[in-house]
Design a protein around this nucleic acid. Structure first.
Lengths: 342, 342
DNA sequence: AACACTCTTGCAAATGTTTTCATTAATTCT
DNA sequence: AGAATTAATGAAAACATTTGCAAGAGTGTT
């Protein structure tokens, strides 16, 4: 019992392979009666068409590559889901790869995805190795950066302005009167998102005449556990900041748990702000004040844009779409203690 | 400027296409000097081999399909990551699909993955539509169920015994003297994991002579927000359970936030137990008592098993591997109030 | 020096589709 | 009714690779 191919089905239906192909790809070109017969033969033989052969013919592979730093935590879960749903509804399948914040690994992954002849590629952020860019340019595959927006980005992008995110968060703390501010960020090397947020926030603080104490700046990877551990250390003792600006909600959640453990009242004695508004941030107690990144909207828009780009292979693909950030004030931030008049 | 194919590279290197192919697939068969020349030509021309053409030849497609209910929350994030890392290290690329707990959607996704001629398929759990099973059997693609273990499962599986998970959680509550018990579960239709956990837990309670009050059994989807909302309702008023058994940690986190909001002390007046030990469960305050599912280990083992299965296409693939559960006692559960002697 | 090997390499067939072009059948128009 | 369209199908080339087979070039043996 051999796997049925298109000629097997054709024989079974008493037509030529060409007709079977047309039934699959341009059903309107074939007579309803023949179509019925072919569909029956397909059904009966259990035929499943071979996309590889189709792709080989220069046609679409009907796949889209998505490269993310990680799927292991909440950060990108929502975009990935929304993006996948969107392109999947259009008949595409997602090839997923994750590089763990290592751009050299990313290069290899992109290469692998190109070997599979993905019809388009989406990556997170605008920081990529030159090799990656060269590769994609050579292959003329539509490439879309998601998550970040930059007015003069070298490649199409759909996302948020991370400098604005940093600015919004910082301004919120400044507006509440905080001057003793700690920042908890991951390494900003190879990570333009964290870098942009941090520099923008720093600029705001500087403009407000706030001096950032080195001892309140800590570097942690994106992990609740490590963020909590780092914050436990940072917040121990009397000499601690009155507010913590965290690179994203995962870190902010860690910070809040650390404060809870230490019995530090939020927001009375400590304010914590995150960036992202990930799942759970709104529900936690205290609810996390954050700069909302509309992940779902990004995923959907990105999916639509990329499908559209695949649709016009000749037109060169350039879109720069900024989705709006929003400061979501919840209960994890409050007026700085020293500003509260009795 | 046309994209270089294998014959272009061959010409550039002054060899035949066959030799180039051998350099890519069986490097040891070609003379080191020629190999060098070919590699140089590949480099110079920016050639990227076409997996589609390769797959068409009956060879491997070097892809593995993974179908999960969702990637939008923490539940499967860790397995997906570990699985991806493992197979990726072996040169495979992941085709990802998510069906949102709808087995009819799953059928269509599986079909799509088979069109792409994945070398193997992994799915979550043992509940699947008959069509899905038929499809996969016809195509003779190795199929592996992850997350669940069942001694007499109809297909290879690597995961945990969900009945045991439910049992461990329930026994823990019973051991602490709880008799007024609520359960927060998602719909168990089409979801063998939730179903197994629930029936096992129910059996334990019944054996302990505990009567489950209908008003304390609630059904919620896997979402922190909805779990919290449901628990706010469940826990309002005086007539509430002393312990909550949650189908998984996502729901349990929602329950804990609900209690925090209502000012119900955990574990003094309410115990909450989850299943899963997802990221953040250990760090939250109070730290969540849970039945640990070693997601990473499952992902790695599953990746290894499936790659191995691809390696021996003739031998039929059957593995049933149970990974051990472990009750992790933290601070969200405690002795039932009515058992505490002054 | 002839023989039997082993290494390398090229030729050509095969893989499963899609698509262009041509052919035949059916329909419409005058 | 005959010509001119239009619709439906088939034949065959094309797509980019892999691999079995065969041939040529060295190498060691007698």
């Amino acid at each position: 019992m051999i796997k049925p191919d298109i000629v097997f089905v054709a024989k079974l239906a008493g037509v030529s392979p060409a007709t079977v192909s047309r039934v699959m790809n341009h059903p309107d070109l074939v007579h309803p009666a023949t179509r019925k017969r072919v569909e029956l033969a397909v059904e009966k033989s259990g035929y499943i068409r071979n996309r590889a052969a189709q792709a080989m013919h220069g046609k679409r592979s009907a796949t889209i590559g998505l490269v993310v730093p990680t799927v292991a935590n909440t950060i990108f879960a929502e975009v990935v889901q929304a993006f996948n749903d969107t392109v999947s509804a259009q008949g595409f399948t997602l090839l997923l790869a994750s590089h763990g914040y290592d751009l050299e690994v990313e290069y290899r992954l992109v290469r692998k995805l190109l070997e599979h002849r993905v019809d388009a590629l989406a990556v997170v952020g605008l920081d990529h190795s030159p090799g990656t860019f060269r590769l994609i340019a050579e292959q003329r595959v539509p490439l879309l950066a998601i998550w970040n927006y930059l007015a003069d980005s070298p490649l199409p992008c759909i996302g948020v302005d991370n400098r604005e995110a940093g600015r919004l968060a910082a301004e919120h703390l400044v507006a509440l009167g905080h001057r003793r501010i700690g920042m908890v960020f991951p390494a900003t090397f190879d990570n333009d998102r964290a870098r942009d947020r941090k520099t923008a926030a720093t600029a705001v603080f500087r403009a407000a005449g706030i001096e950032l104490q080195d001892r309140w700046q800590v570097e942690v990877p994106y992990s609740i556990a490590q963020a909590k551990a780092a914050c436990l250390e940072l917040l121990a003792g009397e000499d601690r900041p009155s507010a913590l600006l965290c690179a994203n909600d995962v870190i902010a959640q860690g910070a809040i748990y650390a404060a809870a453990r230490l019995g530090i009242a939020i927001p009375a004695s400590l304010s914590v702000i995150g960036i992202g508004d990930f799942a759970g941030s709104a529900q936690m107690e205290p609810a996390l004040t954050t700069v909302r990144i509309p992940a779902q909207q990004i995923g959907i828009s990105a999916g639509q844009a990329i499908v559209e780009a695949i649709g016009r292979p000749d037109a060169d693909f350039m879109i720069r779409s900024r989705v709006e950030l929003e400061l979501i004030m919840r209960t994890s931030t409050g007026i700085a203690a020293e500003m509260v008049r009795p």
